[in-house]
Amino acid sequence: MLKHTLAAAQTEGHVPSGFATRTGISLKPRYYEDILAQRPEVGFFEIHAENYLSAGGPARYYLDLIRQYYDISVHGVGLSLGGDEPLDVAHLERVAALVERIEPAMFSEHLAWSRHQNSFLNDLLPVPYTPERLQVLCEHVDQVQTRLKRQILIENPSSYVEFHSSAMPETEFIHELAQRTGCGLLLDINNVEVSCFNHGHNPYQYLLDFPMRAVQQIHLAGYALDEHAALALKIDSHDAPVADEVWQLYQYALQRIGDCPTLIERDGQLPELSQLLKEAQQADQIRANAQELRHAN
C-alpha cells in the first residue's frame, strides 16, 4: 500500500555524509515526494524535533526514508532551555528517543524559553542576560547534553526587546554559556541581522564580538519588515528568501571562521523545492569562494 519501502533504500548501501561539506535545507512535508523522486544534491535536511515525535504517520515514514540518503540535523524548538522552571523531562525523553533512532549529524536548540507552568507558548521568548539566568541555562544545557550523550549547539536568538535588567551583552552571555557547558553554537545570521536592526546595533560588530570558535553550524533565513507600529522592526519570519544583507554578513562570518555547515531555513510561504536548492547552491558558492580566499592568504 505504501509507495516506498525502507528495504529498497537500504540495498543501495549509501552512507549519507553531506552535513559538513554541502549546504542543507529545511525538511517540509510538501517536499517529501520531490526529494525521493529527484534525490537533489543537497548536503542535509534539518527537521524540527517536535514535528517528528509521533509513532507513525507520514512524518516518521518519510523521515526514515530520507535519512537513508541524506544526513539529518535535528533542531529542537520546545525544550524551553532558557526557562526558569525545571525542564519537561517527559519531553526531553521523547526528543532523546528521536535522536537515538535517527542518529542526526547535529542537534541544536535555542537560547529562549517557551514553557510556563503547564502551558506551552509556542514562541521563542527572550531571556534577560543576568548571572542567575546564565546559571539556570547552563544547568539545562548540561542536563540535555548528559541525556542525549552528545554535545549540542545553542542558537543565538532573534529579539525584539532588550531588558534593563540584563547585566551583560548577548555575545558575552553566549560566550559564557559555551565556556561553562562545552556546548557548541549555532550562529543564525538572520537573527543577527534582525536583532541588530531592532536594537540599533552594528551586525558586523556583533559578529566580531561573537565567540566564533564555538560555532559549528550556521542558519540563513529570510525576515519580514514590519512598519505598521510606532517603530519599524525586522521579524524573524522564515517565510522569504535570504536577504542580501544577510548573504553579506554570511560572507563576513565565513572569513572569520572558515568553512561551516550551513542551513537554508524556511518555514513559511514555502517555494518550490528547486528555489530552496538554488539558495543552498548560492551558499555553497560563497563557501567555496571563502575557502579559496583563505588559502590564497
Partner: peptide, 27 residues
C-alpha cells in the same frame, strides 16, 4: 513593560506586541 528598553510607552508596546502576535498567530 518597564523592563523593556525603549524611548517611551508606545515603543515598549510595539516591541512587546511582536511576541504577543507571534504566540497568537502561531496558535
Amino acid at each position: 513593560l518597564r523592563d523593556i528598553k525603549a524611548r517611551g510607552a508606545s515603543e515598549q508596546d510595539s516591541r512587546f506586541s511582536v511576541y504577543r502576535n507571534n504566540v497568537q498567530h502561531s496558535l
